[in-house]
Design a protein around this nucleic acid. Structure first.
Length: 581
RNA sequence: GCACCCAUAGCUCAGCUGGAUAGAGUGUCGCCCUCCGAAGGCGAAGGUCGUAGGUUCGAAUCCUACUGGGUGCGCCA
């Protein structure tokens, strides 16, 4: 259920009735008619822009339409008043009975309250993390993992059929480097002194991989040339790295539905098939690119390459898909991978990249547009950098010095819930500060704590009620009489609860899970306000001594809040706690 | 040089497919502990929404130009 869409339906029905009566002309488009919470709650519970949107096409004055609409809406029992305001806004107040029935509805449906059918079961593929299988995940990957995972959950909650996918870059030169690095560790495991030359990975995490390789093949590769061992060591090493990465993701509670291997595109004709598809559309040609102006590489020479005419699909320059030596560029398997996703029949594709991949957005969109003939939309979300702080001091990361912070470091220090929630309290395209001390702080300026505390507070009240001998299970609470719920502070909480289904749709439509985190903060804030009001106004306390009916009614509202908090935290992948420690 | 992202209160940030007097937290100032937890509550002050134009009944939001910051730009993926 969704009160806002219910009332919008009422508005549309009323407008249709006005058309039937000849009050406004027929054939008007009602698509832009909205019903929203007003910015200022003093204006009412909901506001509609119907009169202003329709004034021009209807050839009438906004206020006249608004007056007529107000008269009709007032006939509905749910609407207690409808007032025209400002240039033609129509402010609605809903009958208290509407708000009083809301907690009961929430308790009946549980965390499913707020689920939306807007996705209509459409299939969406969310690709995220997709880190190279050359080492453990670091903080940057962590943000992408958290964002992608929450986005996927959000879309599922909004009625989409979601696939979570990881693209394994196991086909390029970087996995050869990995193999050589592991080979060095392998020699080391045989007691040899080795030197990590430029370009190899010196990280300690490869030591056990080298030892495992020794245990598996003995000394078979010692002293052998690269062409003897490279391929097998590469496979062995990438498998080991993917196990490591899956374990890292597991620490965050991220589980993929599908791992797609880049390597599986080579030698199977899949790249060729994707390129042929573009060729058939006349988008592949041989040509020479202009050098980038202003930043001309020193060794620039014009070369003839095989190019994809991405400019026909919105890109700035055409992109090479084949190097001058005839091998594929990295872009070619990316095209083939997205061709595969298009062919798997998704209605919508979403890629979550790090900010350093901003330059690939246009070309990937161009490729998908070309491959699907514009039928499959691709949305690319870039996650900005995470700036780490400790004791208020910036935390310098250097891959070279081996001081980069891994996902494991972060999760082990602050836990998966704090990590996830905090990383979702910022828009994906804004840089994020992550202070190891602040995120653990138990105070109001830490949203993680504040939201968790609200939920724990409700459960604390539930425990106290049980001690007092009051039945407070959800089924019982769903049936209590809430007609005594009339105080502004209580109605404010109910209004905020009514926004949840609407917020889910907005967040899902914009692919912005951070909106859920902000909403939960506001809801928690309203609950804390009501709780504290009980200090001054005894009849607002959740526990009404000696009055079981009143206590149950108060607790029904509080419990509805905790249900919505649980639903929201569920989307963010955060465990709701019932007790603060 | 070009492309993309960003610019909102002293600070960190929200701001709903364009809506009314732009909101939180923090910091500053003033009040409030006999209470179902004061790690809290109530209130005040604090803004030419980077600048200049444009579209519109209406712009923080859309368009154009500029300023400032970040990221990236053909045989690395």
């Amino acid at each position: 259920m969704n009160l806002f869409s219910d009332i919008r339906t009422l508005v549309i029905d009323s407008l249709n009735a006005m058309v039937a009566d000849g009050a406004i002309p027929g054939g008007l488009d009602f698509a832009n008619v909205t019903v929203e919470p007003p910015r200022d709650p003093l204006h009412g519970d909901m506001a509609t822009n119907a009169a202003m949107v329709l004034a021009k096409p209807a050839g009438a004055k906004p206020r006249d339409i608004a007056e007529a609409l107000a008269a009709r809406l007032s006939d509905d029992p749910r609407v207690s008043s409808a007032e025209v305001a400002g240039p033609g806004f129509l402010n609605l107040r809903l009958d208290n009975a509407v708000w009083q029935s809301l907690p009961k509805a929430i308790l009946s449906s549980g965390v499913a309250y707020g689920k939306s059918g807007m996705g209509q079961g459409r299939r969406v593929n969310v690709e995220y993390v997709s880190a190279n299988p050359t080492g453990p995940l670091h903080v940057g990957h962590t943000r992408g993992a958290v964002f992608g995972d929450a986005l996927a959950s959000l879309l599922a909650y909004a009625g989409f059929d979601v696939t979570r996918e990881y693209y394994i870059n196991d086909g390029g030169a970087q996995v050869d480097v990995l193999a050589r690095s592991v080979y060095l560790r392998y020699l080391e495991a045989h007691g040899q002194e080795v030197a990590f030359v430029d370009g190899t990975y010196p990280g300690d995490y490869l030591i056990p991989v080298g030892e495992a390789l020794r245990d598996k093949v003995g000394d078979a590769y010692v002293g052998q040339p690269e062409d003897v061992w490279l391929e097998e060591v590469r496979d062995f090493a990438t498998d080991a790295m993917m196990l490591l990465i899956r374990a890292d993701l597991g620490m965050l509670g991220v589980e993929m539905d599908m791992f797609f291997s880049e390597k599986s595109l080579y030698g199977t004709g899949l790249i060729e098939a994707a390129i042929d598809s573009l060729k058939d559309k006349g988008l592949i040609y041989r040509g020479v690119l202009e050098p980038p102006k202003g930043k001309k590489p020193e060794d620039w020479e014009p070369r003839e390459q095989t190019l994809f005419k991405s400019t026909e699909h919105g890109d700035d320059v055409d992109r090479p898909i084949m190097k001058s030596d005839g091998s594929w560029t990295y872009f070619a398997p990316d095209i083939a991978y997205h061709y595969d996703k298009v062919q798997r029949g998704y209605d919508l594709l979403i890629d979550v990249f790090g900010a350093d991949h901003g330059g690939y957005v246009k070309r990937m969109k161009a490729a998908v547009s070309a491959l699907s003939d514009g039928r499959t939309p691709l949305d690319i979300k870039l996650t900005q950098l995470v700036k780490l702080f400790k004791n208020g001091e910036p935390f310098k990361m250097s891959k070279r010095a081996g001081t980069f912070v891994t996902l494991r470091d972060v999760v082990e220090q602050v836990g998966p819930d704090v990590t996830r929630f905090h990383m979702l309290t910022r828009k994906n395209d804004a840089p994020l500060d992550f202070d190891f001390d602040k995120v653990l702080e138990q105070s109001k300026d830490n949203p993680v704590f504040y939201v968790q505390y609200a939920n724990a507070r409700v459960h604390s009240v539930l425990r106290k009620a049980v001690e007092a001998g009051v039945t407070v299970d959800d089924a019982t609470l769903a049936g209590v009489d809430l007609s005594g719920m009339t105080h502004d502070s209580e109605l404010a909480v109910a209004r905020k609860l009514a926004e949840w289904p609407r917020l889910v749709e907005i967040a899902a439509r914009t692919n912005e899970p951070h909106r859920v985190a902000f909403y939960l903060y506001e809801l928690a804030s309203d609950l804390h306000a009501l709780y504290n009001k009980g200090n001054d106004v005894p009849e607002l306390r959740f526990l009404q001594e000696g009055n079981t009916d009143a206590t149950q009614a108060k607790i029904a509202l509080a419990r509805a809040v905790s249900v919505v908090i649980s639903a929201g935290l569920g989307i963010l992948g955060v465990t709701p706690v019932e007790e603060m420690r």
